[in-house]
Amino acid sequence: MGTFFLPVLSHFQNDNFWTASDRRMRYLVTPKEGERLEAQVWEGPWGHAFSHIEEEASFPLSEEGLTQLEAWCRRWSEEINRRPPRSLEETLAMREAALQSRKEQADS
């Protein structure tokens, strides 16, 4: 497994978000209402705005929630990084599909 890191609880308690990666897996964690951690995961290489979100999850804003979040991220990292590498054409097509989907959502 690659290097995986989540900040300490106080980082999120101070209303800071966190975005990072573990090889091809990308994730974003955002504190909500001082009570929850909202997380999103996607396959890279593109950033959040150019990618299809594979799953969203919510965890308590607590040490237990951080432990649950880490396990969730590690499971996704294993799944995404186990996939065969994509060709450049496949990667560009994924990016285009994600952009089109976001455009359609914005228009509706």
Rank of each mutant, 00 (worst) to 15 (best):
G2M: 09
F5L: 13
L6S: 00
P7K: 08
L9H: 03
S10Q: 11
S10I: 15
S10W: 07
S10M: 11
F12M: 01
F12Y: 06
Q13D: 03
Q13I: 09
Q13Y: 08
N14F: 11
S21N: 08
S21K: 12
D22F: 08
R23F: 05
R23V: 10
M25I: 00
V29E: 02
V29H: 05
T30K: 14
P31F: 04
P31N: 06
K32A: 13
E35L: 10
L37K: 03
E38Q: 12
Q40Y: 10
E43N: 09
W46Q: 13
H48L: 06
A49I: 07
A49E: 13
F50S: 15
H52Q: 13
H52P: 00
H52E: 13
E55W: 03
A57M: 04
S58C: 07
F59G: 00
P60H: 05
L61G: 01
S62Y: 01
E63R: 09
E63N: 05
E64H: 05
L66Q: 01
L66G: 00
T67G: 09
T67N: 12
T67Q: 14
Q68C: 01
L69Y: 02
E70M: 06
E70C: 10
E70I: 03
A71N: 14
A71K: 12
W72Y: 04
C73A: 06
C73H: 04
C73P: 04
R75P: 02
W76H: 08
E78V: 11
E78M: 14
E79N: 14
N81T: 09
N81P: 02
R82F: 04
R83G: 08
P84F: 07
P85M: 05
P85H: 08
R86G: 10
R86A: 08
S87T: 11
E89H: 07
E90H: 05
L92A: 11
L92Q: 11
L92K: 11
L92R: 11
A93I: 08
M94A: 14
M94C: 14
R95E: 08
L99R: 10
L99K: 11
Q100R: 15
S101D: 12
R102I: 04
R102F: 04
K103S: 12
E104T: 11
E104G: 10
E104V: 13
E104A: 14
Q105E: 13
Q105D: 12
Q105G: 10
A106F: 12
A106R: 13
A106K: 12
S108F: 13
S108K: 15
